[in-house]
Amino acid sequence: MAHYDITTPISDADVRKLSVNDTVTLSGTLFGIRDATQIHMFDHGRETRFDLSGHAVIHTAPNVRKVEPSEQYPAGYAPVCIGTTTSARMERFTRPLMKKNGVRMVIGKGGLLDDSLAAFGDLGGVYLAIIGGTAALETTWIEAIEDVDLDDLNPESLWKFRVRDFGPLLVAMDSHGKSLYTTVRSDSRGRRDQVLANLGVKQR
């Protein structure tokens, strides 16, 4: 259970050092993506001008305010409230995101599934769990919205954030085939029968 302060992008070797239950704090660039962003990138063949290789993406669709572009708000957007959405809906995009765009870290809530876990092993990546529903806190970790692409999909645009001390995030799925979600899930399912017995439920 080690802690790592990481400045993005990250190398293959460094991402493979991370194991489940380690914690990570990120600084540098972070990209925001969501359902529609990836549907357009991978189902409709849209390209982004951003280089995502070695980078981290967060499953989000932020609340933003349109402002005059300035040094503080280079993209013409001020962050209002930036939080994280449930990752599992976007399961099928993890592999193409890693393979085609070189993404190495996916941040989200609730975890990803088996295909993503395999992709993390094959291509060198991790899933970092953030605490869902703590957007007020997350917003304080974001320094600026630096740029935005595919903005016709707003709020599901491809966002480029500058972050400092973003975290701590929990490594919940690693490149060694381990997933904290699988562990907790099998553990909690193992408790089902005892709980039902405590409720006096007769199992046929």
């Binding site: 989000t60 669709a61 932020p62 609340n63 209002v80 409230c81 930036i82 939080g83 994280t84 959405t85 869902g132 529903g133 703590t134 957007a135 007020a136 806190l137 917003t139 304080t140």
Partner: peptide, 12 residues
Amino acid sequence: VAEQTDNLLCQD
């Protein structure tokens, strides 16, 4: 933090 910064608790 939400109360101190007068911000939304969750982005959803």
